[in-house]
Design a binder for these strands. Sequence first.
DNA 1: TTGCATAGTGTACACGTTTACATTATGGGA
DNA 2: TCCCATAATGTAAACGTGTACACTATGCAA
Lengths: 328, 328
Amino acid sequence: MAKPPTIRDVARLSGVSTATVSRFFTGKTSAIAPETIENVRSAAEELGYTPSEIGRSLRLASSRVVVMLVPDATNLFTADVAASVENALKGIGLSLVLANTAENAEKQDGLLADAQGLRARAIVLQGAMDTPRLREMAERQNNLIFVNRRPAPGIVAPYVGVDNFAGGFAVGRYFIEHGYENCVAIHGPRHYPGSSRRLEGFLAGVGEMRQVLRFECAFTMAAGYQQGSLLLADRSRRYAVFCANDMIAYGVYRAAMERNMRIPEDLIIFGFDDNRVNEWLAPWLTTVKVPAFDFGPAIAELINEAPATNDHNRTVILPFSLTIRQSA
Amino acid sequence: MAKPPTIRDVARLSGVSTATVSRFFTGKTSAIAPETIENVRSAAEELGYTPSEIGRSLRLASSRVVVMLVPDATNLFTADVAASVENALKGIGLSLVLANTAENAEKQDGLLADAQGLRARAIVLQGAMDTPRLREMAERQNNLIFVNRRPAPGIVAPYVGVDNFAGGFAVGRYFIEHGYENCVAIHGPRHYPGSSRRLEGFLAGVGEMRQVLRFECAFTMAAGYQQGSLLLADRSRRYAVFCANDMIAYGVYRAAMERNMRIPEDLIIFGFDDNRVNEWLAPWLTTVKVPAFDFGPAIAELINEAPATNDHNRTVILPFSLTIRQSA
DNA sequence: TTGCATAGTGTACACGTTTACATTATGGGA
DNA sequence: TCCCATAATGTAAACGTGTACACTATGCAA
């Protein structure tokens, strides 16, 4: 693999200085003679020249890369958010580096270091874990953006997400209004603010009158299956289950299917996120719809306007709605 | 945001030269006095220094970024492959930039230019489209890797994927062996080699005896729904449908559900890929299982051994199997 | 003619690294 | 004592780009 041509090669071939070639590729064409423009263009094409983003980044002390850290890239909701972010960033000339923290604090910190090494334009954290390194970075620079899980109290930084409390509350109210008995919450890990807010909202929505069975659970199908199996061991009741996200709900569903239970006759399942496949594969799932594809534009705008504003605490709250399906 | 400390700042604070600091961060610690190591380490920590990957890339004329181009990031199989690749690359110190071509040749070429600008260590193309630019790049450099869709005949480059023909063939045989009548193939776009190989394999598996109804269809749920609705307008027969991938199968499923059809009594659906959610949400779907999470390691190895070998035409064929579910 | 504005282009430096090579200090063998 | 190997460190030159500044040529007004 021959090494790629540089701006100097193009300059030489087109008989101008590197400054002029640079001007051409940075769009300052109004200051170049039309004839020269054509020379440069054809020389570049002949050589197959593409400006080095590395050289450019070094010179400008800023890259065009945005790093996004997610807890679980195989979560369907996360994948859609990532696709949305990638698309929105492309619109403003940025690239997305996707990385998986696997809900592991050490990995997160390592990836934060990597992102810093890349001199990322912005670092988007979905489901951030509160670590000293994270706090330090939030203080030192202002290019952190939090998604869906609010940073710990001490950290101020832009945030994009839904009102988790209100979402949970809406489900709780729905349960009450429809007279569901035997309410169950399979909530996410309690130490994650977003997760506990959903639970708190749900409990508030249900109110004091009804008791709520609670299970704690990772945000995965396998974990949901496990908790669901535990719950459904007792088949004497018709439970109404609120799952902290749809992945958990899928797990509960499988546990129910294995027991030949019908939905909603024998069991009611609610979720959170409303993954895109629900419309096709999960007609039994009523769930809080979060507009996954609105995250990208919101994040892109936060990144774009960042230089202009000094407000490090901007917040975008996206609207949610309840998607009622035949489970209800 | 104060600009980040450089290697010079660390050198100054620890009272050594930049060379020594560099040696520390590139792991050449055996050539440094233990006391000096400690000085550098603490100075770097105090300043919060992280080596600039940009400066490093410039110096070494090679970045640690791998760009992966996918036709549709919201395809569940694609998302799992991407997660797998990201994870495997992390293991060898590389980052993944994910980008979406949306099956659009112009976008693909633009993204190829971006990848070249980033001086990507490797460019992974899932579902590549045959364009002049792609051919040119394949000739000029040898860092292209193709996934799941073989490059056009003229292009030699490493490839990772399954034997699409054999996969389709296995389904065709299964149809015959189980005596399915009214065979249907909803195949992917005919101009994609991977897609047409699946179809050819299926037709070969079914053999001459049975006629096969064919529909051409994009690899999406919506497209599958559309074709499925067309097909199921005629309810007089019990069709056995082979879909070119699972997303299409989901669409057909929805069309069937809207008509209150039962599977497998009224309709048989086969897919391709075996997305992870199938196990949880699609017990009705029998499908060719492709090991999504084996792609990452295979690709990482191809990238890693690339410098060592001159064989630009290495090929990794991953095994598939038929996952039989209650549809069959 | 001179003076001056302007269009077009070039020169040269900085950005943050890595590393070949040079340099110094130290210790051991002759 | 001198020589040399070795350990530890420093010097300096790239890598590819953008841009401030300098410079030349041209046209126009006075």
